[in-house]
């Protein structure tokens, strides 16, 4: 169904900002193209600033020495992995309610980046664990729920990959993403509960309570860099998905004939 597209077509010169105007791939494609470079530049700049703060400005930790500095990557990655899953679920709900193809495409475009963040969080968590706990893996509540979150991403992507019909893939993926999003807090709570019972790892991955302000700033800037990267990567991917799915439509053909210009 191309409901939003037709509603946008009916209001060509609608005054003010029409949200649904950009809900059709045809109009969103150039917009996404214009947003790409700003996202990349912002991500690179923020990342440079954040790493500078993290490695040169922030003080050495009294108990953990310099090994703690991995939190400037680990914590933003863990945050993003959760934010991206919620964003995916959000687009899926929007897609199911308003029947907009683009929402489902956004959701599929976000998934690999989210999985990447979950993986980075796990990887850096393991690297941090070695000097801190003396072992790469501890069944810490956060690490365990991060691992399960990673599996949820994998499940979503595997389901979409297994279905040929794009419409079925969209909807089935949306359903599992929403069910997963409902489950994420339950999983986190249950894992935490399990963890306190077994007393396996009482050291939490959150840094010392008296964190220097510069450390916080470093993490914040890195988190913003991660946001910018995520948006950029999702836009790049959603452009590719749009072209692939809509390759039979006139606007993609015109685009191809126009020499594939960026906007």
């Amino acid at each position: 169904m191309s409901e939003p597209q037709s509603s946008a077509a009916r209001l060509p010169g609608a005054p003010g900002f029409n949200l649904f105007h950009y809900a059709s791939p045809q109009t969103f494609y150039p917009l996404a193209g214009r947003l790409l470079w700003p996202c990349w530049l912002l991500a690179a700049a923020l990342c440079a600033i954040g790493l500078y703060i993290g490695f040169f400005v922030a003080p050495t930790d009294a108990t953990q020495g310099d090994s703690y500095r991995i939190i400037f990557i680990h914590v933003p990655a863990a945050w993003m992995s959760m934010v991206v899953y919620l964003a995916m679920a959000f687009w899926c709900i929007v897609g199911l309610i308003f029947n907009t193809r683009l929402s489902f495409m956004m959701s599929s475009a976000l998934a690999p980046t989210g999985a990447l963040w979950a993986f980075v969080a796990l990887w850096t968590g393991a690297l941090w664990g070695k000097p801190t706990w003396g072992t790469y893996w501890v069944w810490d509540a956060r690490l365990t729920s991060e691992l399960i979150l990673f599996f949820l991403y994998c499940g979503y992507m595997a389901l979409q990959a297994a279905i040929d019909d794009p419409r079925r893939a969209d909807r089935a993926g949306a359903l599992i993403a929403i069910v997963g999003a409902v489950n994420v807090p339950i999983i986190y709570f249950s894992v935490k509960w399990w963890n306190t019972l077994h007393q396996g790892a009482s050291v939490s991955l959150t840094a010392a309570p008296t964190m220097a302000t510069t450390m916080l700033w470093g993490m914040l800037v890195m988190a913003l860099a991660a946001w910018a990267y995520t948006v950029g990567a999702a836009l790049l991917r959603v452009r590719a998905i749009m072209i692939e799915r809509e390759r039979h439509t006139d606007w993609v053909r015109q685009l191809a004939q126009g020499g594939g210009s960026r906007t």
Binding site: I148, F151, L152, C154, G155, A158, L159, A162, I163, A172, L175, I176, V179, G180, N183, I186, I187, F189, S190, V191, W193, W194
Partner: peptide, 27 residues
Amino acid sequence: ALTLGLRGGGALIALLVLPLYVPVLIF
């Protein structure tokens, strides 16, 4: 229901459902 009629249904259903089983398993 989600994996009905899909290739690789068995492995896929494990990937989809096992994470959801975690709380029940723990409790």
